[in-house]
Design a protein around this nucleic acid. Structure first.
Lengths: 144, 144
DNA sequence: CCAATTTGGTGGCATTTGCAACTAGTTATT
DNA sequence: AATAACTAGTTGCAAATGCCACCAAATTGG
């Protein structure tokens, strides 16, 4: 297939969609969607977060996080308690069940990145990751 | 905001969603969605393509391309003619209207990439683009 | 040359995400 | 202290995408 691509923008679209299909498949064995798995990872990493904290760190709309958390609470992965200092907000905490799947979900995520970068050298892969983080942080900072 | 991110996978999600919001906004003035604009770019670049050719090059599902093209034909950006050699397939060609918006849409896409990489040096930006294309091509090749 | 398989395209349905309007609680202004 | 402005979260709706089942044409294998 000649000249598949010339644009970084299109590349990002392709990488997003492909990696999410892979990640969703990988998470299905734990009865989780990709979106739910990502939330589990970030909440476990921080131990406690508000919904807004998750929203800002993932660059998703707050309504998306609200819906995902409702599901995760129902399925026993998260606990929501009203914050005493600010009654508008919830403290979101992982359950033991969440901590149990954490390493496996993390592994799935790494596998996805490994797969898309399999023809890169270790140096290239590390540089790719560094630039991705840099661009993502800048993008989040831009509209907030 | 401390430790926003640690994972390349999450970064790709963020970059995709943010850049698509920007791109959609940028394309709205031409009465185009981001998805439609991307199809216009690729069809103009190749002059003629089948729906399957577009599908493979963008890594999207074939039903998505079918729906997008139906819309683009209705709004006068694309022409579909049945291929004489293979009556199952369409030859998709851009109209003059498509060629007219092409440079502006391309510009919007570049602006998005520029925005997310604004703190990079020119060298970093070029390297980032190279690695994105490399990973995207590999991802497409993987499941086809 | 006929049957089986493959390929390109369509339509329906489900999921993910984003936006806008809304509620309730908090902070700032006067 | 009262009101205005802001912030966290919820809900409903719309758009984008993916998957599946299906159809029609083409290719392959006997």
């Amino acid at each position: 297939m000649p000249n598949i691509m010339d644009s970084a923008f299109k590349s990002i679209s392709i990488l997003y969609r492909k990696s999410h299909i892979w990640f969703n498949d990988g998470c299905a064995q734990y009865a989780l969607t990709g979106a739910q798995a990502v939330v589990i990872l970030i909440v476990c990493d921080f131990e406690v977060l508000t919904q807004d904290g998750i929203t800002k760190r993932l660059g998703l709309d707050k309504s998306v996080i609200a819906k995902t958390l409702t599901k995760l609470e129902k399925t026993g992965f998260m606990i929501r308690t009203i914050n005493a200092k600010d009654k508008r907000t919830y403290d979101i905490r992982p359950t033991e069940k969440a901590r149990e799947v954490y390493p496996f979900v993390k592994e799935q995520m790494d596998v996805c990145f490994q797969r898309m970068t399999q023809q890169m050298t270790d140096t290239e892969r590390a540089e790719f990751k560094r630039l991705l983080l840099l661009a993502a942080e800048a993008s989040i900072a831009l509209d907030s």
